[in-house]
């Protein structure tokens, strides 16, 4: 009875892991395929598609755009989010108002990305603002902010107020308390939120699809539009590079904070 159970359990576990990892493995295998079409099993080993991907300005240009955009959005969204989290946690607001504020600040997580994109497109067009960078930056700050707020708020809620009192009794001014104690203690949480926001921004397609223009595109959208007309393994090469970078990042995050805590909601 229990051996049946454990057999059942093991096959189930294995099947689940295969399901989760298969597409990633498939992408990596196809990316080193020597042939011109994604074939399985691959026709020999070659890194030519990595070369092709890196030589394609559509990918390199958009990758740069995505990186700069994610960095700018994180740089703007993090202070906004941290300030808002402080205001919500420390503002001594009546609980109904506090709940409302929290709901408003976390609403970008609920509103579908495509709706955010369309709404920004329509209103900014009406206002005569058609610059792709401006539109993208506004949209992506919106994406980053709630993640920073969520992690900062959680950290502020579990923050021991006597830490600040201890610093105060030891002679620290309000400013010194903030810069030497409060912010450093919150730093892992803020960093986690910012890192998550960066990844979300970098990976976004749904918000950006309405905000790019003919000369400015992000990497996920460049990949998607390339896929419409081409199916060669250079996409696999780009995707593999994305997977490698993300996994390296995940490993670092796991070492620093623990991935689960980082992803936990």
């Amino acid at each position: 009875m229990s051996t049946y159970f454990s057999l059942f359990r093991r096959t189930g576990t294995a099947a689940l892991f295969v399901f989760l990892l298969a597409p990633l493995v498939a992408v990596i295998i196809v990316s080193v395929n020597a042939g011109a079409t994604p074939k399985f099993p691959p026709e020999g080993f070659s890194l030519r598609w990595y070369g092709a991907a890196l030589a394609n300005p559509a990918f390199t240009g958009s990758a740069l755009t995505s990186l700069v955009l994610a960095a700018v959005a994180t740089a703007l969204g993090t202070p906004l989010g941290v300030a808002a989290a402080f205001g919500i946690a420390r503002g001594k607001l009546p609980s109904s108002l506090r709940g409302l504020l929290e709901a408003i600040f976390l609403s970008p997580l609920i509103v579908p990305g495509i709706v955010i994109g369309v709404a920004l497109l329509v209103t900014l067009s009406t206002a005569g603002l058609r610059d792709a960078w401006l539109r993208l930056t506004l949209g992506h700050v919106l994406l980053v902010m709630p993640y920073v707020i969520r992690t900062s708020l959680a950290a502020l809620q579990s923050f021991d107020p006597s830490l600040e009192e201890a610093a105060h009794t030891l002679g620290a001014s309000r400013r010194q308390i903030l810069t030497r104690v409060t912010l450093p203690v919150l730093r892992p949480a803020i960093f986690a939120g910012a890192a998550f926001g960066f990844i979300i921004s970098f990976d976004d397609a749904a918000v950006s699809i309405f905000l790019i223009d003919s000369s400015t595109s992000t990497l996920p959208l460049a990949i998607m539009s390339y896929m419409q007309y081409n199916f060669d393994p250079s996409i696999a090469a780009v995707s593999s590079m994305l997977i490698a970078i993300t996994l390296a990042g995940a490993l670092v995050i796991e070492r620093v904070f623990g991935l689960k805590k980082f992803l936990g909601n």
Binding site: D160, S162, L163, E165, A166, A167, H168, T169, L170, G171, A172, S173, V181, P184, V185, R187
Partner: peptide, 20 residues
């Protein structure tokens, strides 16, 4: 007088050691 200028040493129940 502000706590910062009273020259006191305080030990808290939670200890409040700076974790970082």
């Amino acid at each position: 007088l502000s706590a910062a200028r009273r020259n006191i040493g305080m030990v808290f129940q939670s200890l409040a050691l700076f974790p970082h």
